[in-house]
Design a protein around this nucleic acid. Structure first.
Lengths: 104, 104
DNA sequence: TGGCCATATTCCTTGACAGGCATATGCCTG
DNA sequence: CAGGCATATGCCTGTCAAGGAATATGGCCA
């Protein structure tokens, strides 16, 4: 799993996010995704390759099919990236709560 | 504030993330950012424009300077986007905890 | 093994975007 | 109001990624 690929660049592609949204709910073969996305099979395979190399998905083989599933690691990385920013709104919220408390 | 611009596409650019990381800690003028990033002033201004139009930053005017500050809304949107995925690891964690509990 | 099915890869074209340089705009001060 | 400082915009070029069509790979079954 190549980790050097930038998670945000991978997520910048709407189609790839749609793939993740689907795989979040259920595993899917490539054909399933092609049907769900209404896109050509090569296009889907190429997006899956990008997702794979960034660690977002992996697959198991079932006969001639490849069943793709989602991986959490890169998504956790995004979650971690948000950490320093979250205080921006939680602190604002705290300040607001204090303000409201002082009003009653 | 144009909200149609895709937050992930904006964050896909490493330089823009660096700008946000800095603005998370402190407001900065364009000149401050140019110094901090070691990049040409036009390049920085262009990134700021993208960030502005996506709602990530706004500015106030101080004499000839524009003091940029971070906005939380688009970051909250990313945080929200993660919501359905977070259960993937929290549930795994819960399952692990249950397993460990059953072992003792 | 030959042919078929599911998926991957290659080639090609097109469009978007980043950065540098030059230049325009806007605002302040003497 | 002239000159200068801070920032924005336009133009140009190189890079890169997405999608389509054609084709290659690899596993399954008769």
């Amino acid at each position: 799993m190549v980790v050097s690929v930038d998670a945000f660049a991978v997520l910048a592609e709407p189609t790839r996010r749609r793939i993740l949204e689907r795989l979040c709910r259920t595993e899917s073969s490539v054909g399933d995704l092609v049907d769900a996305l209404g896109m050509s099979q090569p296009a889907v395979s190429k997006h899956l390759k990008v997702l794979r190399e960034a660690g977002f998905v992996s697959y198991r083989t079932a006969a001639q099919q490849r069943i793709y599933r989602i991986n959490v690691r890169p998504l956790q990385a995004v979650d971690d990236w948000l950490t320093p920013y979250r205080r921006l709104w939680t602190e604002h919220l705290d300040a607001l709560e204090r303000h409201l408390d002082s009003q009653e």
